[in-house]
């Protein structure tokens, strides 16, 4: 257990130091939101309707661009070989790496969301469902992303390939997450079913993507 905690702590510290890129994902998140607002124009009524889905799409894209980082640095300096060779249970190690990615990418995105919600004129009733759906859904994004990133770890310039692989796997989380934020913005307390489905998707990812990540890592390193 302490080894897993050490991996998480090390990755989070690396991500927040110079060249780590954790804040780049938040900056990208804000940038997508701003670009979307510029594209939609000053129609506030329209903006209120689409604010939740826009936040979700932007969070997903910001996660997407950060996935390549999960295993690459470890691969390049050789520590990935040591991690794979010495791990008692590689799926748990993969889950720890996904957790570290969430702490350094998913959590900052959630913290930045209320501020960006103001820019997007997000209705007051939608803040809770948007934040809750992001809190439940972004761990799933990190878990699935760690798998896709593990598939491509031995390839140079794999970012586009990772995006192509991971986008269809992200679809359920995006659908339920944005669905919860729309249901909340409509004013009704009808977002609970979407949150439950979202939780189911994340739990499913938590069960299977560490195993798949471990298999992908082993296949990449032999």
């Amino acid at each position: 257990m302490s080894a897993l905690a050490a991996i998480i702590w090390r990755d989070v510290r690396l991500a927040f130091r110079a060249g780590g890129g954790a804040l780049q994902a938040v900056a990208f998140f804000a940038l997508v939101v701003v670009l979307f607002s510029l594209a939609v124009g000053p129609d506030i009524a329209l903006m209120r309707k689409i604010a939740g889905p826009v936040l979700w799409t932007a969070a997903l894209l910001a996660t997407l661009i950060s996935l390549d980082q999960i295993w690459r640095a470890d691969r390049e300096d050789g520590s990935l070989d040591i991690i794979v060779e010495t791990s008692d249970a590689l799926p748990l190690t993969a889950a720890a790496k996904a957790a570290a990615h969430w702490f350094s990418t998913g959590l900052p995105l959630i913290i930045a969301t209320p501020i960006l919600g103001v820019i997007l004129n997000l209705p007051a009733s939608a803040y809770v469902p948007v934040l809750m759906s992001l809190a439940i859904g972004t761990p799933g994004l990190s878990l699935i992303g760690a798998f896709a990133s593990a598939l491509a770890v031995s390839l140079p310039r794999a970012n586009l390939l990772i995006s192509i692989i991971v986008a269809p796997l992200y679809a359920p989380i995006l659908i339920f997450g944005a669905g919860a934020s729309i249901a909340g913005a409509a004013g009704a307390a009808q977002y609970a079913p979407n949150l439950m489905l979202l939780g189911a998707a994340t739990l499913f990812a938590a069960l299977f993507s560490p195993i798949a990540s471990a298999a992908a890592l082993r296949s990449n390193l032999d």
């Binding site: 598939l151 692989i165 796997l169 298999a215 990449n220």
Partner: peptide, 8 residues
């Protein structure tokens, strides 16, 4: 690797 992706 492609096999893992197909199964997932």
């Amino acid at each position: 690797l492609a096999a893992i992706l197909a199964i997932v």
